[in-house]
Amino acid sequence: MKNGRSLVDLAQELERQLESKKDLIVPSSLVRHTTDEAGDTRLVVEETGGPVQYGVTPLARRQLADKLKIPYAYFERMREEQPALLDRNVNTWLQNEGDRRMLRTLDGNVRAVLSERYRRLDNFDLAKSVLPILQGLPGVRFQSAELTDTKMYLKCITSRLKYEMAPGDVVQAGIVITNSEVGQGTLSVQPLIYRLVCSNGLIAPERALRKTHVGRALGGEDDAVTIYQDDTLRADDEAFFLKVRDVVQAAVSEVTFVQIAQKMQKTLNIPLKGDPVKMVEVLAQRYTLNDTERSGVLRHLISGGQLSGYGLVNAVTHYSQEVEDYDRATEFEALGGRLIDLSAQEWKGLAEAA
């Protein structure tokens, strides 16, 4: 499993962000887009005290283009080659829209352009709610935690639940909690399998319990900008976060763990009869792996010396530890979980690739 930051570092960054972020519900007509000669974009919002300029992150640019139905490749070409044309396009559509948008800002930058119905489930409040629950699990240890530009991750293992895949090959139960404040995924609680012999983590996405970020429309019906303070946000979400506790308990139950472990164990009996190179090529095409990722999975499959479904699952999850991007590394852990859920026919297509 890929290492992240310590819980102390995570808590400190969440505290810092709490002081620096601001959410606005803004009528599109009160937003103006500007681009300088270097291609840096800004959104100017007509707030109560006057116009306020915000930088725009790449993710927010993509979301803005999507909201205005401007193809992103064209948006970026205008930004780089014809910034004045980009501003005319964006501002024309903004002024002709009757919609209200949620702009989520951090450190003076717009980090997300979302619907006014976006349900704010913030990382600080989630961590405050679930960390005491996780710390109360028997034999718990926090294996990895991270805060990326798009998501927060909490991954922990409990030594209370163990299962022997083969003699000397023991896995433990765990849990991964993820959340995105910027529209890049639901709040998700997923079971995790941790293999002691190689520190691989496998996420079982089919057993995920999720909460979507969709709620009631926020703000009034007037044409003013509404700014939500952090105490208002926390009060609005407190009742929901109380419900997360039951979800956490279910994710690390013995029944759930044993079912997933047994499903993983069955892959020991799936022989890989085809050409390993061709087989990993099929895997890469099916799950959109780039050349570097494909080569890394193949290397771990060969070095592991176990040409079985189990060997392929562990090659995928082991490679995740080498992936620099934490979000992408977690996707490889989830890919391992998707593989153990393959049907016999799907495994045959991989195992007999020639």
Results as ranks from 00 to 15, higher is better:
Arg5Gln: 15
Arg5His: 14
Arg5Met: 15
Arg5Ser: 12
Arg5Asn: 09
Arg5Trp: 15
Arg5Phe: 15
Arg5Glu: 15
Arg5Cys: 15
Ser6Pro: 03
Ser6His: 05
Ser6Gly: 10
Leu7Gly: 02
Val8Asp: 14
Asp9Pro: 02
Asp9Gln: 14
Asp9Leu: 09
Asp9Ser: 12
Leu10Met: 09
Leu10Cys: 04
Leu10Phe: 04
Leu10Thr: 03
Leu10Gln: 02
Ala11Pro: 03
Ala11Cys: 03
Ala11Ile: 00
Ala11Tyr: 10
Ala11Gly: 14
Ala11Asp: 09
Ala11Val: 00
Gln12Val: 00
Gln12His: 05
Gln12Ile: 00
Gln12Arg: 13
Gln12Asn: 10
Gln12Phe: 00
Gln12Asp: 12
Glu13Ile: 11
Glu13Trp: 09
Glu13Asp: 11
Glu13Tyr: 07
Leu14Gln: 04
Leu14Ser: 06
Leu14Gly: 06
Leu14Asp: 04
Leu14Tyr: 08
Glu15Gly: 07
Glu15Tyr: 11
Glu15Arg: 13
Arg16Ser: 11
Arg16Lys: 13
Gln17Tyr: 12
Gln17Glu: 15
Gln17Leu: 13
Gln17Gly: 15
Leu18Cys: 11
Leu18Tyr: 07
Leu18Met: 13
Glu19Met: 12
Ser20Gln: 14
Ser20His: 11
Lys21Ser: 13
Lys21Ala: 12
Lys21Cys: 10
Lys21Gln: 12
Lys22His: 05
Lys22Tyr: 01
Asp23Gln: 09
Asp23Val: 10
Leu24Glu: 01
Leu24Cys: 00
Leu24Asp: 01
Leu24Arg: 06
Leu24Trp: 06
Leu24Gly: 00
Leu24Tyr: 09
Ile25Gln: 00
Ile25Pro: 01
Ile25Ala: 04
Ile25Cys: 05
Ile25Val: 10
Val26Lys: 01
Val26Trp: 04
Val26Gly: 02
Val26Pro: 01
Val26Met: 04
Pro27Phe: 08
Pro27Ala: 06
Ser28Val: 07
Ser28Tyr: 11
Ser28Lys: 12
Ser28Arg: 13
Ser29Ala: 13
Ser29Gly: 14
Ser29Glu: 11
Leu30Asn: 08
Leu30Met: 08
Leu30Thr: 02
Leu30Val: 03
Leu30Tyr: 05
Leu30Cys: 03
Val31Leu: 10
Val31Gly: 00
Val31Gln: 01
Val31Phe: 06
Arg32Gly: 00
Arg32Met: 09
Arg32Trp: 03
His33Leu: 12
His33Ala: 10
His33Glu: 02
His33Ile: 01
His33Asn: 08
Thr34Arg: 13
Thr34Asn: 07
Thr34Val: 15
Thr34Gly: 07
Thr34His: 08
Thr35Ser: 14
Thr35Tyr: 04
Thr35Arg: 02
Asp36Pro: 02
Asp36Asn: 12
Asp36Cys: 09
Asp36Gly: 03
Glu37Lys: 08
Glu37Ser: 11
Ala38Ser: 07
Ala38Asp: 06
Gly39His: 04
Gly39Trp: 10
Gly39Phe: 11
Asp40Ala: 14
Asp40Trp: 11
Asp40Thr: 12
Thr41Lys: 02
Thr41Tyr: 01
Thr41Asp: 04
Thr41Ile: 10
Thr41Asn: 05
Arg42Gly: 00
Arg42Tyr: 05
Leu43Ile: 03
Leu43Gln: 01
Leu43Lys: 01
Leu43Val: 05
Val44Leu: 15
Val44His: 10
Val45Gln: 05
Val45Ser: 04
Val45Asn: 03
Glu46His: 04
Glu46Gly: 00
